[in-house]
Amino acid sequence: MIEARGLTRRYGNKVAVDDLSFSVRPGRVTGFLGPNGAGKSTTMRMILGLDRPTSGTVRVNGQAYHELDQPLRRIGALLDAKWVHPNRSARAHLRWLARTNRLPDRRVDEVLEAVGLAAVANRPAGGFSLGMSQRLGIATALLGDPEILMFDEPVNGLDPEGIRWIRGFMRDLAAQGRTVFVSSHLLSEMAQTAEDLVVIGRGKLISQCTTAEFIDNASESLVRVRTPQAEELRAALARADAEVRVEVETGALLVSGVTTQLVGEVAAAGGVVLHELAVERASLEQAFMRLTDDAVEYQTTALPAPELVTAGR
């Protein structure tokens, strides 16, 4: 359980995290979603007591981080996989860390085995690829066998194999009943792994809900219809107050603000033959963009998009 209440962090005039309140429920994967620069990493550093909040509090299992005895046994974290001395071996890195929280050396070999680094454990960590560094970071997080795990952008920069491995690993951790709090700037990534979402933009909370709710609320659904009698159906739907567009390449109709049932009934009433009737969701990325639009830190002026969808005549 992680609970933030009114968490705020200012750097000079800049507010990195702004009155943020959320909770991460135990035994679930919670995604921490926001555009780059939204304050995700700052928030995670405050959870670990590395950065000091300007105001507000954050508690781990009801305690401030600095009150935790042997914190590696409560909460494990991977904030930056490059936080290792490049000339120190992976095993030595884990050994000193284990020693601080009185974890046995045996545990070091267990986690190296778990992340698949046992064979390179005595090699200097500076020579590791990003994927191997990320595995070492995860080994670091797992060291104290904690019930809460926190990962900051764990798939960033990884190849598909690495991404697949991390996703699987997080699912396994959740299946073991652990609490996982994982950040990303990609909603599609979160949709694959997280059950709950905490969405922030410019340091402010935008939404806390389940992933399914977020996608439902955020995405506009369209009904896609293909019919040889497009003109007739379009007119009939217009009478039913539906907004209809024609997809240029295929000639299919895209109807917004209605259900498939309604379109089917309108078509049947008008004796229109349907070749296809389907719900089409706006992509998750579009949904996310819509919600965080004015919360993006470094905004660019959008280039005019080529017009793929035009209003029907």
Partner: peptide, 16 residues
Amino acid sequence: TEYRFGTMRTTFQAVP
């Protein structure tokens, strides 16, 4: 070097 390579953060995480 601990500040340079970020291990000071890991240290403070382990020993708050």
